[in-house]
Design a protein around this nucleic acid. Sequence first.
DNA 1: ATTAATTCGGATAAATTAATCTTATTAAAC
DNA 2: GTTTAATAAGATTAATTTATCCGAATTAAT
Lengths: 143, 143
Amino acid sequence: MSVIFSKKCEYALQAILYLASKDEKEYFSAREIAKDLKIPKEFISKILQSLVNFKIVGSKKGKNGGFYLAKNPNKIRLIDIVEAIDGLDVFTTCVLGFPECSYDSPCPVHSEWGKLRSLAYDMLSSQTIDHFTEKTLKKINQL
Amino acid sequence: MSVIFSKKCEYALQAILYLASKDEKEYFSAREIAKDLKIPKEFISKILQSLVNFKIVGSKKGKNGGFYLAKNPNKIRLIDIVEAIDGLDVFTTCVLGFPECSYDSPCPVHSEWGKLRSLAYDMLSSQTIDHFTEKTLKKINQL
DNA sequence: ATTAATTCGGATAAATTAATCTTATTAAAC
DNA sequence: GTTTAATAAGATTAATTTATCCGAATTAAT
């Protein structure tokens, strides 16, 4: 099965969109995020922890603690989330898996695929979370 | 780690490019393909078997047998290989993993990502193996 | 202080994907 | 016909990804 983002990355994006759709400076526990987004609680906890390490999300321990966005949604690019969770290897390593593939010694599909990959990278780099918050609100209410 | 194609799919594409770069109607054994492309022999055998089932590759059993392209390289699109090995779900299911995502009820990144995905699909659909054979010859000689 | 609810970190388990092994079948060459 | 070299198919193992579990630390409320 081909895939573009790992499950972790999908969940991370969902969780961030969720937090962005809520009021600032409130704490949302892994439990309620998991429940609302229908993601396994333990798994989303781990992912949120990673995002905390990357300073994208903040957390508060103890009773009534939880998670919140550590940055303004207009400062969080989609690519930042991909980088934090999956890394940026997809954008640099050969699609065909040829270890010898490079600009100077490209694999057969290098240039064609490279264009597309640049487009993806540019899209993910230009789009920030705030572009999506309104849509997110609508979507979450359906879940 | 995000990824675009599975390893299987990468190997399948490599093997097909390999066969396309060779003379027609000669048989190439899994052993020599594996050796030349530096892919585990047993694994590439399995993958070639799948491609045989999809009529993209043909095979001949017994001594001096092996694999060959069952179709003209200009009739084999990249998307055919992806479809045979990984399926086309990447192009239809939600990038965010929202099960409720659809045209009528799109997920927040639906339209932005959708454009990109269409581009990918179009690219893979329009490019056929023969476009790459010359480049492949160069590349294989380096391995 | 005690309790309850939370994050955090490490360990473990389950599921999926990747890779290997084994045996059967096929067909050419001797 | 026997041997040899190949694909085919099923079973098994290994590695990776996904998911869960548990115990410790933290903090608010009682």
